[in-house]
């Protein structure tokens, strides 16, 4: 479900040149998790406590870009570095890193509790449903914001929604692949799908399929070969990207 979520959102983010927002928000998640751990939140509550901070940061990225009239990547850089700095500062205040924070950094799917699975499932279904309901508006804004605005689409509202959905997805995905690797799960299946897709709908469906294959086979391979799960998932994703790229080159040369 997380794979489907990241992969579907990834197509919109990559085409909007917002690929690195996942990375930026993941860094903020690091700070938020440190804050939650400092206040003594445990297990599922750590993620839940991180959600408001990450949503607020996502809003901050939008507002900094808008008000300071700077490009999105610079706004992401500002919020992201602030997130990391907060995390390091809080970890230092708490007397150093502890094992919990480490599992958030690199992910550990086997440590996910039953409550976390349930909450992740509910939130993932909600996010996927919102994407499905706003699909045409999201496509319109991704294609061209001004054309979308002159077709009556509330561009600002859709942009805010996209960033909020990404923030929620980043928090949900951190236990699967870890904070350090979330952006890869947002970017790799989407870029692989964009190599092959012959329509926007196909791009979304293909991205979701490739994301699910990456996560499922990554988990299986990591279990079989006793490798770190998050990193294995990313390697599988990269192999699929390489295969898609080669397939595109082959198709073009025919």
């Amino acid at each position: 479900m997380i794979a489907a979520l990241c992969s579907a959102l990834g197509v919109f983010l990559v085409l909007r040149r917002l690929s690195l927002i996942g990375d930026g928000l993941a860094h903020v998640t690091f700070g938020s998790v440190a804050l939650a751990l400092l206040f003594g939140f445990q297990s599922v509550y750590t993620s839940l406590a991180a959600i408001p901070c990450v949503l607020l940061s996502a809003f901050g990225i939008l507002k900094i870009a808008e008000k300071a009239k700077i490009y999105g990547d610079a706004a992401i850089g500002i919020v992201s570095s602030l997130g990391i700095a907060t995390g390091i500062m809080l970890a230092s205040l708490a007397g150093g890193f502890n094992v919990d924070l480490f599992s958030y950094l690199f992910g550990n799917i086997l440590s996910i509790s039953r409550e976390e699975v349930l909450i992740t499932a509910v939130l993932s279904i909600t996010v996927l449903l919102v994407i499905a309901l706003c699909y045409n508006d999201l496509l319109a804004v991704t294609f061209d914001e001004e054309l979308a605005a002159t077709s009556g689409t509330r561009v600002e509202r859709i942009n805010t929604m996209l960033v909020f959905l990404t923030a929620l997805t980043v928090v949900l995905a951190m236990k699967v692949v870890g904070i350090m690797l979330i952006s890869a799960l947002l970017i790799l299946p989407a870029t692989s799908a964009l190599q092959l897709a012959r329509s926007f709908r196909t791009a979304i469906l293909l991205s979701v399929a490739l994301g699910i294959v990456s996560v499922a086979s990554g988990i299986f391979a990591s279990f079989l070969l006793n490798l770190p799960t998050g990193a294995t998932i990313i390697f599988v994703s990269f192999l699929l990207f390489a295969a898609s790229f080669l397939a595109k080159r082959l198709r073009a040369s025919r």
């Binding site: 045409n136 294609f143 054309l147 979308a148 077709s151 012959r198 926007f200």
Partner: peptide, 18 residues
């Protein structure tokens, strides 16, 4: 963006959103 994956039909149909 030259790698935008929408077809001509998909793009024209977006005009109907209004």
């Amino acid at each position: 963006n030259p790698s935008f994956p929408a077809t001509v039909r998909e793009v024209v149909r977006l005009g109907r959103l209004s």
